[in-house]
Simulated assay, not measured.
Amino acid sequence: MEAVYDPWSAEFVADPYPAYAQLRAAGRAHWHGPTRQWLVPHYEDVSALLRDRRLGRAYTHRFTHEEFGRAAPDAAYEPFHTLNDHGLLDLEAADHTRIRRLVSKAFTPRTVENLAPTVRRLAAGLVGDLVAAGGGDLLSAVAEPLPVAVIAEMLGIPAEDEERGRLRPWSAAICGMFELNPSEETARRAVEASIAFSAYLRELIARRRKSPGEDLISSLIAVEELTEQEMISTCVLLLNAGHEATVNTTVNGWWTLFRQGVRPDPEKLSTAVEELLRYDTPLQMFERWVLDDIELGGVTIPRGSEVALLFGSANRDPARFGPTADVLDLERADNPHVTFGAGIHYCLGAPLARLELTAVFGELLRQAPGLRLAAEPVWKPGYVIRGFEELLVEV
C-alpha cells in the first residue's frame, strides 16, 4: 500500500481521505516500508490501541535502546530529546501518572470556565482587528495569536517580555521534529529552539520562586514534586499541544466551510466545532511503540515495532460514523471522534481547545458574517500536523 499512502506527496497531504478509504478496505494493519511503521486505519482499532498498555509513547521505561532494537538518539539532538522526553506526552508508567495528576489541576472544568471571559475577550479583539483591516491572513491574525496568548496568560509569561513574541516560532520549530523523517535542518532548528525556550523558562521559574503569582508556573513550583526539567518540559508541551489543535481546526475548518458554502448555526456552535474537529483532523497520525507483541486482523506486530494510528482515517470510518462519514454534518449528534486521543494520553487541554474554538468561530460569525476566501491556500508540507501556510480572507 506504499503507493496509496504517501505522506511526502503534496497531493496526498492536500486530500489524504481517498487513500485512507483504500487502506481501510485492504485490511486492519499495513506495513509501510519508507517510514518503517505499521499503519492502522480503522476507528475501532485506533480507539482500542490508544488504550492498550502493550503500547507506549516511549519504551525506555522498560527497555534499553539495544534491547528494543533501536539506535540511541543522535547526541547532537540531546537538547530536544531532554525537553521532549520529560514532557507528559512522551512519559509512561509512574512518571506519567505523577505529572498528569499534578498538571490536571490546571485544567479542571472550573479553571477552564474561569478562563472563558479572557478567551472571549481575546477572540473578540483579534477578530475585530481583522474586520477593521478589511481582512487578511486568518492564520497569523487570529488563529495563531489566540491560543498562544491564552497559554502565555496561564503560564504567567509577562506581556513585556520580548520572548513572548518568540513562543510561536519556538513551538513551530520544536513541532517540526514530530513530522516523519525530519531533515537535518529541521532537527537543527528544533535543537536551537529547545535551548532558547528552556533557558527562558529556567529564568522565568527563578523569578517566580522569588516572587510567586497566580499563574501555572507558580503553582507547579509550589507543588514541590516536579523537577525543574519536568516543569520546563510541561510548560513547553502545554504551548505546543495547547495551540496546534486550535490553530489548524480554525483555519482548516474555515477552508471547509468556504468550500462547501455552509455556516454553523450560532446556537449549535459546540456541535459544529466537534464536527470540524472530526471532519478534517488537525493531528492526522499518532505514533506508539509496541512493547509486547500484538495481533491485528491476523497480523502479528512484534515488540519493537512502531504503529501509526491514523486519526484522520479513523474519524472518517463508515464502520463508526455510518454512510455519512465523508459528509460534513454540522449538526452531527453522535460524534466520538479520536481527535484528542484516548486513554492515558487523552489531551488534557481538550476543554480549553473547545472553549477557544467556540469563541473564535462565534466571533467570526458575529463580526464577519460575509467572511470569504481571498486566495487559494497552500498546504504546508507537513503531514502529521496538517495545516495551511496561510488563509487569506476578506470581510
Rank of each mutant, 00 (worst) to 15 (best):
L220Y: 06
D293Q: 11
I294D: 08
E184F: 08
T250C: 09
S194R: 08
I221H: 09
T234M: 01
A245I: 12
I217H: 07
N240A: 12
K268T: 13
D280F: 00
I294T: 02
A206H: 00
S305D: 03
R303Y: 10
A187H: 02
G213Y: 04
S305A: 15
P282L: 05
S194Q: 05
A196E: 15
G312I: 09
S219K: 15
L291F: 03
P182R: 06
T227Y: 12
M177P: 08
R263E: 01
V290W: 03
V191D: 07
R288G: 05
Q229W: 03
P264Y: 07
E228Y: 06
K268V: 07
M177N: 09
Q260A: 10
G304P: 00
E192G: 08
Q229A: 13
E274I: 01
Y200S: 00
Y279K: 08
R188E: 06
G261Q: 11
N248P: 00
L291A: 04
R263I: 08
K210A: 15
Y279C: 09
S270K: 07
M177R: 04
G213S: 05
L309A: 02
N181M: 07
D265S: 12
T300S: 14
L257C: 04
E192H: 08
L310R: 06
P302Q: 12
L283Q: 07
L277A: 05
L276P: 01
K210N: 13
L257H: 01
T227M: 12
E185H: 02
F311W: 10
W289D: 04
